[in-house]
Computed example of a mutant assay.
Amino acid sequence: MSIRILVAVLLAVPSPDGLSQSLSPDQALATGPAVLETGHADIGPRYRDGAWSIQIHDDATVPPVWRSPDDAVIRVRDAAAQAVPDDPAYAFLGAPAGTRVHVLPQTRQDGVVWLGWNTQDPGLLERAGRGVTMKLRGVRGPGQLTVFLQSGTLGAPQVLWSSRDAYPQALWVEKNTHTHANWVFGAPGVYLVALDVAAELADGSTETAGVTLRFAVGDAASADDARTAEIMLPAASPPPVPDDEFDLPLWWAGVAGMLLVAVLAGAGVRGAAVRRRAERARS
């Protein structure tokens, strides 16, 4: 397959077919291990029975079901491997032109899982205000992960998340939205992707839930390893100190305290010497 064809596959515009959908409130939560490697799947926040969670909507089964990300491993088959285009516009992928990478494409492709996200759960539509914030908290894997959108072959790529950048990385999604993007994995192996999703509710409150997505990239990657692996999230950065407020660190406070003691002690010694000289003068 030529580079020109590969670029067309990677950058194709998502067709309206398959993106227009509505979800039934009666769809069940399936339990038990599952490997999603073909068909349509969406990451989505749910509000059900008073509980807020992030689940995976599996549309490949009949009827469709929701799954826990702890049970579901997303398999990225070798059939999804493509070459990085010879175009400087894709330097953000962090790999030389011609490098083979695994891509879950923005458009549906036979034999490859079609992964997106939706904010169409009926419970969410009822409770949410304007939408949700999806926040990338961290990525563990043998290569770089990049998620980007492309509006046609002439539009510039829009990077949504990249494991090369600092965390967290926030993405605003309006409610009743269904979106697909390109997921690019730089090397085969097990990937863990930590996400937080926060919903602004109609009553002004906010609900937040965290989730770890599990990927087995390449035919040789172990789904069992992906299911049992763990991720260490980067520590949150300390909040900045306001301009109108300055707090000394604890060790500076200790130094300041010792300096104060030394100054007072010095003053006491000098005061005693002055008193002795005054007494000798009087005598």
Results as ranks from 00 to 15, higher is better:
Ile3Arg: 11
Val7Asp: 08
Leu11Pro: 03
Leu11Met: 10
Leu11Thr: 14
Ala12Gly: 13
Pro14Gln: 03
Ser15Asn: 07
Pro16Phe: 12
Gly18Tyr: 06
Gln21Ala: 11
Ser24Trp: 01
Ala28Gln: 13
Leu29Gly: 09
Pro33Val: 12
Ala34His: 04
Glu37Val: 03
Glu37Lys: 13
Thr38Trp: 02
Gly39His: 04
Arg46Phe: 08
Asp49Asn: 15
Ile54Tyr: 06
Ile54Asp: 05
Gln55Pro: 04
Asp59Gln: 10
Val62Lys: 04
Pro63Ser: 02
Val65Pro: 06
Val65Gly: 00
Asp71Cys: 04
Ala72Phe: 02
Val73Ser: 06
Asp86Arg: 11
Asp87Leu: 01
Tyr90Pro: 01
Ala97Glu: 02
Gly98Glu: 00
Thr99Ser: 12
Arg100Tyr: 00
Val103Met: 02
Leu104Thr: 00
Pro105Glu: 07
Gln106Lys: 11
Asp110Ser: 13
Gly111Thr: 10
Gly111Gln: 08
Val112His: 00
Val113Asp: 04
Trp114Ser: 13
Leu115Lys: 01
Gly116Asn: 10
Trp117Asn: 02
Asp121Trp: 01
Pro122Trp: 04
Arg127Tyr: 14
Ala128Asp: 08
Gly129Asn: 07
Met134His: 03
Gln144Tyr: 01
Gly152Pro: 01
Thr153Trp: 10
Leu154Met: 13
Leu160Met: 11
Leu160Gly: 00
Leu160Glu: 01
Ser162Cys: 03
Ala166Phe: 02
Tyr167Leu: 14
Ala170Val: 07
Trp172Pro: 05
Val173His: 07
Val173Ala: 12
Lys175Gly: 03
Thr177His: 08
His180Glu: 05
Asn182Ser: 11
Trp183Ala: 00
Trp183Thr: 00
Phe185Cys: 02
Phe185Ala: 01
Ala187Leu: 09
Tyr191Asp: 02
Leu192Gln: 07
Val193Glu: 11
Ala199Gly: 10
Leu201His: 13
Ser205Ile: 05
Thr206Lys: 14
Val211Arg: 07
Thr212Trp: 00
Ala216Leu: 01
Val217Phe: 05
Val217Met: 03
Ala223Ser: 15
Asp224Ala: 15
Ala229Gly: 10
Ala229Asp: 12
Ala229Val: 06
Met232Gln: 15
Leu233Gln: 01
Ala236Trp: 07
Ser237Phe: 08
Pro238Thr: 12
Asp243Lys: 10
Glu245Gln: 13
Glu245Ser: 11
Phe246Cys: 11
Asp247Lys: 11
Leu250Ala: 15
Trp252Pro: 00
Val255Glu: 05
Leu259Trp: 06
Leu259Asp: 02
Leu260Lys: 08
Leu264Lys: 03
Ala265His: 02
Gly271Val: 07
Ala272Ser: 15
Arg276Asp: 15
Arg280Tyr: 07
Ala281Cys: 08
Ser283Glu: 15
